[in-house]
Design a protein around this nucleic acid. Structure first.
Lengths: 159, 159
DNA sequence: CTGCTAGGTTGCACGAAGCAACTCAGACTC
DNA sequence: GAGTCTGAGTTGCTTCGTGCAACCTAGCAG
């Protein structure tokens, strides 16, 4: 976690990375989104992460509002803890999908696996794409990037 | 950088994070994509990163094939180094855009700025979206995630 | 009352991050 | 031709987070 840009940079990417900068965090989120993991041991077994690190990361995710910690109890079992994604956490699926597509394309492995996102009702696989205001897809080569104040979007919508 | 999943995990996201896991790396890429930065001092001044860290990150980016280091010389100047994104580096725009949208939505700031991607010819702003095989947009709530072997995509295309 | 399992906590060792200071080489100034 | 400015780093030191292993605790099973 870089200290200089740190906690409340004006840049939205820096603010995202403040929460997600640690790579375990994104892997935990990936596991929750893709595999539906909710329990401590599911994350630990799937990722091979040390328990102290996992505890700290899960606590950060709860602090940052990406997950909620809930106590639940199955019949005949004792009370357990589970970690469930919030809306903010679930909406990281765009980031997870982008990372997955990039890794699959630019770091290919013959035996690789990737999270794929499918339409719930039809199992139709989906991709990530840039779309313009009329809903048409635009290839990345035809784009330019520019840093813009966030408020301009509201102004745009009004004017 | 997590050691356990580390260098050549079967998961494409873990492989992406192996390269991008350090948050400085993504901020450097962001700066190159959004601001078009190429020179050492441009990155240092924009990000406030310590020069030893920056030198190490840039070297990693070159090693990993996301950037190339080139010597150039402007007339009347001595030879300088510049760092230019490769295709692999430029295609991180999807990841950068996803992080920017997430930060803008879930970590809003009144004085925030975000990188926006615009269509080169028309200045029309674009968004990131999931699209199905027919090019229609699908909201994230209607998706399920599943881990799938990468090869199945090739098989899909054939069958 | 012993073991088993889920969900952690504690205690070190080591490597990376952060900061400041220094280097080096070419061009420009006087 | 001595000083100086500027870009592009390197070196040294300190501190903080990561990784590993070991330990702890609550409940249920036998």
């Amino acid at each position: 976690m870089p200290k200089a840009l740190g906690r409340d940079s004006a840049c939205s990417i820096a603010r995202s990375l403040e929460v997600l900068g640690d790579s375990w965090t994104l892997l935990i989120v990936r596991e929750a989104i893709v595999a539906g993991a909710t329990r401590f041991h599911e994350f630990r077994d799937a990722l091979g992460v040390a328990p102290n690190i996992l505890a700290k990361r899960l606590a950060s995710l709860v602090d940052d509002g990406l997950m909620v910690r809930r106590t639940y109890q199955e019949p005949g079992e004792r009370a357990r803890e589970e970690y469930v994604l919030t809306d903010a956490g679930r909406s990281l699926s765009l980031v997870v999908a982008a990372l997955g597509e990039w890794g699959r394309t630019h770091r290919p492995r013959p035996d690789g696996t990737s999270p794929r996102f499918l339409v719930e009702t039809s199992d139709d696989p989906v991709r990530l794409a840039f779309v313009d205001s009329r809903g048409g897809q635009v290839p990345p080569e035809r784009l330019v990037a520019r840093r813009v104040p966030d408020r301009e979007r509201a102004t745009e919508a009004i004017s």
